[in-house]
Design a protein around this nucleic acid. Structure first.
Length: 545
RNA sequence: GCCCUCGUAGCUCAGUUGGUCAGAGCAGCGGACUUUUAAUCCGACGGUCCCCGGUUCGAGCCCGGGUGGGGGCACCA
């Protein structure tokens, strides 16, 4: 009787081949593969088997990992009378005449199945051997035993087709490898690569850890606009769009910061938001146009407290991801993070004291140059030129800096940090007290002129977090915005726009606060040991193909 | 935006100086096989060598352009 089925199959394949070849298949080989599965779909329906039933929940199947855990002590050859119900995708098949071994994969793991012709009805056995393909979704009721080779196995007593796969899965050994296809057809990557599934499971656990820890400390999760009438809270170029009914320009947010501070003004006191930000900039292994951040704001705290909380949260995230601190090159999020000031760390790396000019001030923003012996030369320059001279005195440093003569003091300070310090910051490090010009939303440093109470946290050579003692003096904030407006008029596309609604909110009275933003994607890259941001974002932005 | 690099069967990959170079494994198809796990064995099939143009007696291979991926620079998190 199987011969008759094979006969019918040959005819049916011939029939559907011509259809498929015209439609979607790009080659005869592909058309044959698709036609064979289409035929089996027809044959299933002819036999009265629903290839797409509604559910498999009575009773619920167990996660495969739970079944494995329950029997991990059984010795090879052990038989049991225990029944288990599982469900998943058929990943592999090893046939041996009247018997076959199959591998079933679900979200939690993989397990071996056994189908025997003398255990199953003829109908059920032929379903498995003739009409079920790799990639199909199956529900299994069966009996637990351990094979002679010691593999925990479910002997199938009842198989239920849960969904027919009409396209073949990738290579069963290598999975889907082509990076382009992995990103464009992530579902195929996920179903065929356990490592990819593991990354996104870890990502979910990382975000859940932030939520859990912040909620436990009395923080409220809030949602603020992603479509904003004015963008702010970071230095970046926005996406611009238009709302028809309101007939106005809207921007996709580049950061939630300003709205979250307005929540502080409103008395919510401890708030956080996890969500997407959008920046209209280039793509790279570290950049995507939409990315996920978490920002939290804590009233009555300042930036040292914010650093303590960041250490705690990131450590909790690492644990949630199952990060292995004993592995080669591990980043020790579990140890206290190094804390060093911007000025100290730049001097350590380059020998240049960013604040040296302060000792030679002669008033009116002028500073007197001294010679190599420290003797005054009488030459007066501004702060920018003073630092440029210091850099030029170190040729090894100067040759790494492009357009040295065009750079202002804060730009040059940032450049020195980025070039000589950041790449070497593998272990978690807080860099504290940034120049005020680089930090328009941070409070001035309580003791050092020209600096702010800000830190950026680095690990693996990348920035992972940014925080301030939040500026809450509305008049000072207004002056900072005005300075940004001047940079903007000077051609800086990323200078922050003046936000009067935000300043008025500060006039209402914002409590002193510490605020932190963490780039979730980059943290996930590190905690899952991924190579690029595309590997931790399910559906990354790509060119149209 | 600029520079470098890659694109071969549904999937994973070979392909030498330009001359049996249209190849293998997996998957699929037909068959054998009741403890395998990269199952094994036999058989037949399967190709827009990314696209367009050029050089050449001859191009998967060389050249030009395009396109998509990857890497780097710049900008940024």
């Amino acid at each position: 009787m199987y011969l008759r089925a094979a006969d019918k199959r040959a005819k049916s394949i011939a029939r559907s081949l011509s259809d498929l070849a015209e439609q979607e298949a790009s080659s005869r080989a592909e058309a044959e593969i698709l036609a064979a599965r289409r035929h089996k779909l027809d044959e299933l329906r002819e036999r009265g088997v629903d290839p797409f039933p509604y559910s498999f929940t009575d009773p619920e199947p167990e996660p495969i990992a739970d079944v494995r855990a329950a029997y991990d002590e059984l010795p090879a050859g052990e038989e049991t009378d225990e029944r288990r119900r599982i469900a998943g995708r058929l990943a592999s098949r090893r046939e041996q005449g009247g018997m076959a071994f199959l591998d079933l994969v679900d979200r939690s793991g993989r397990i071996q199945l056994q189908a025997k012709s003398d255990v199953l009805s003829q109908e059920q056995f032929s379903l498995i051997s003739e009409l079920v393909d790799l990639g199909d979704l199956l529900g299994i009721d069966g009996r637990v035993f351990v094979s002679q080779r010691g593999e925990l196995t479910i002997q199938i007593e009842q198989v239920t087709l849960l969904a027919k796969a009409l396209r073949p899965p990738p290579d069963k050994r290598h999975g889907l490898q082509d990076p382009e296809t992995k990103y464009r057809r992530r579902e195929v990557d996920l179903l065929s690569n356990e490592e990819s599934r593991a990354v996104f499971i870890a990502r979910s656990h990382i975000i859940a850890a932030f939520r859990r820890e912040l909620n436990a400390d009395g923080f409220l999760e809030v949602e603020t606009p992603t479509l904003q009438t004015l963008y702010g809270g970071a230095a970046a170029e926005p996406f611009v769009t238009h709302h028809n009914a309101l007939d106005r320009t809207l921007y996709l947010r580049i950061a939630p910061e300003l709205y979250l501070k307005r929540c502080l003004v409103g008395g919510l006191e401890r708030v956080y938001e996890i969500g997407k930000n959008f920046r209209n900039e280039g793509l790279s292994p570290k950049h995507q146009p939409e990315f996920t951040s978490i920002e939290w704001y804590e009233a009555y705290a300042e930036y040292h407290k914010a650093a303590d909380r960041t250490e705690h949260l990131v450590r909790a995230a690492a644990e949630a991801a199952g990060y292995d601190y004993t592995a080669e090159g591990a980043i020790r999020f579990d140890l206290p993070w190094r804390r060093v000031t911007f000025v100290e760390v730049v001097e350590e790396a380059t020998g240049i004291d960013l604040l040296a000019h302060l000792g030679y001030a002669v008033g009116d923003g002028q500073f007197e140059i001294v010679d190599a012996n420290g003797d005054p030369t009488g030459e007066l320059v501004d702060q920018d030129e003073f630092l440029r001279r210091a850099v030029k005195a170190k040729p090894k440093v100067a040759k790494e800096i492009d357009n040295l003569d065009q750079l202002t003091w804060p730009q040059l300070a940032d450049e020195l940090l980025g070039t000589f310090v950041e790449p070497a910051l593998i272990q978690p490090t807080f860099i504290l007290d940034h120049p005020v010009e680089l930090s328009p939303l941070a409070k001035r440093h309580r003791t050092i002129d020209g600096l702010t109470e800000r830190w950026e946290a680095y690990a693996n050579g990348q920035e992972i977090a940014n925080a301030f003692s939040e500026l809450n003096d509305p008049d000072e904030q207004r002056r900072r915005f005005e300075a940004q407006t001047r940079y903007s008029e000077g051609g800086d596309a990323e200078a922050q726009p003046y936000d009067e609604a935000f300043v008025q909110a500060l006039e209402q009275g914002m409590p002193p606060a510490g605020g932190v933003g963490v780039g979730i994607d980059r943290l996930v890259i590190m905690l899952t040991r991924s190579k690029t941001i595309r590997d931790v974002i399910l559906f990354p932005a790509l060119r149209e193909n």
